[in-house]
Design a protein around this nucleic acid. Structure first.
Lengths: 237, 237
DNA sequence: TCATCTCTGTGCGCTGACGAACATGGGGTG
DNA sequence: CACCCCATGTTCGTCAGCGCACAGAGATGA
């Protein structure tokens, strides 16, 4: 399917580094295959590796009251996993669940800490990324509180599409319900509404985005704001 | 009211520093009086100063859809304002509103950046604080989503009491409604319930905590979890 | 003392989402 | 081919919280 000269998707946090530093960094990484449903971090567990997704992506999930779950962030080729190590903390705060199978670059925590010391450019860039994540966390707190399911579902599908890099998403309503922290049948109702309007089409665990622009209009404004923030803080440098 | 030998409340982030560093740091600070309702940062505005509250405290608020508001964090003598500068970002992500009048130490952004370079101990401690805030942001996202008003109100009162250092809080239901992102009359109902159970007493803009332990039991578990996290990450060092 | 303003109490109908349950039907397995 | 599982469709009653509106009561100021 891919061309013979296929260049593996690059991680955006690393792509912008000066060539020398990037190659030094990547020399310390190994490439790993992540499978759907794999748990990379458990809350309060020690972080042994950081991950830079290439074509995989990972959900960061809060577990509350022992049963309720809510996705609060997502990391794909635009981000990384293990941000707490940027702050020098070796503990994972959240559940990290592989939501899109694929490859990622991985480095040990110790090597990563050393790389941060060696490369101010990298360090600076990752601090900016951390700022973006923090800001998004705060805003999505309000989004989850005030916005209703349909808009949040549309936003979530768009975010996933961006990271999966395809219109075809492998997702059940059940899974979406867990991500959004709502009932399964609540997702069904909203998904049907989006399908009726011709924005998506779905069938037994597969969702296809038909009208991306329409979906953006159906989503809450948070989607655009998130992208603008990322672009503003991480475009240059 | 205070004794002649009154020692001003110390800021916990600074209190644990080695004496030499602390004094050097504080020499660069000025003491400022913060008044209720004062806005220290507007979202997207440049951060000119960082603040270390002594007996004042500040709410960090997300404004969404131009009208809805939701408090996502609070900073008192246990924390600081202007955390984005710890990451080297000179932009404030959130609305910072003085919620408890009092004093704070203040330092210019430029001096602060220099101090971080000069004092690894300070830097390390502030990164730990940042980790706590991030973790709390993520969890309160779920709290705001799943927990109901009464538990959240109780939690909020406790957090405020901790930072105000008194049982007497100056708060209207209207204000509480804004913090929690709910209707004013929703707060009235929950507040009455807490009062009926003898946990608090209130009257026209003044709330008194009568039974702190009972209030903790009425609050969602998030209150205890927040405190434990702070203690775990910032107690030592 | 009176007028006014602010804070709180309370009522109404409404809606979004809940929890639980059952129906349907496509797909994969044996 | 038969079977079963699993994803989705749908319903029912319930509930928390909404938006709005108004009433009463304490505070404030003229």
């Amino acid at each position: 399917m891919t061309s013979i000269l296929h260049v593996p998707a690059a991680n955006q946090l690393l792509a912008a580094l000066p060539s020398v530093e990037r190659q030094a960094f990547m020399a310390d990484c190994e490439t790993v295959e992540l499978t759907f449903g794999e748990v990379l971090f458990q809350p309060a567990e020690t972080v042994t590796h950081v991950y830079f997704p290439l074509d995989s992506f990972i959900s960061l999930i809060v577990v509350i009251d022992g049963e309720n779950r809510l996705e609060v962030a997502m990391a794909g080729q635009e981000g990384m996993l293990g941000t707490s190590l940027v702050l020098g903390i070796e503990e994972a705060p959240l559940l990290a669940l592989v939501q899109g199978a694929g490859t990622a670059l991985r480095m040990t925590a110790a090597n990563f800490q050393q790389r941060l010391l060696d490369s101010p450019v990298l360090h600076q860039r990752l601090k900016r990324y951390l700022y973006v994540v923090m800001h998004q966390l705060a805003k999505s707190s309000a989004c989850n509180h005030f916005h209703q399911i349909e808009g949040r579902l549309a936003r979530w599908l768009l975010m996933t599409q961006d990271r999966a890099g395809t219109d075809q998403l492998q997702l059940t309503h059940e899974f979406l319900a867990m991500m959004l922290g709502v009932r399964r049948s609540g997702v069904t109702i909203s998904a049907r509404a989006l399908q009726t309007r011709g924005l998506i089409r779905y069938h037994r665990g597969a969702i296809e985005v038909l009208d991306r622009q329409g979906l953006i209009e159906a989503s809450c404004e948070c989607y655009n704001e998130d992208r603008e923030l990322y672009a503003k803080v991480l475009s240059d440098l």
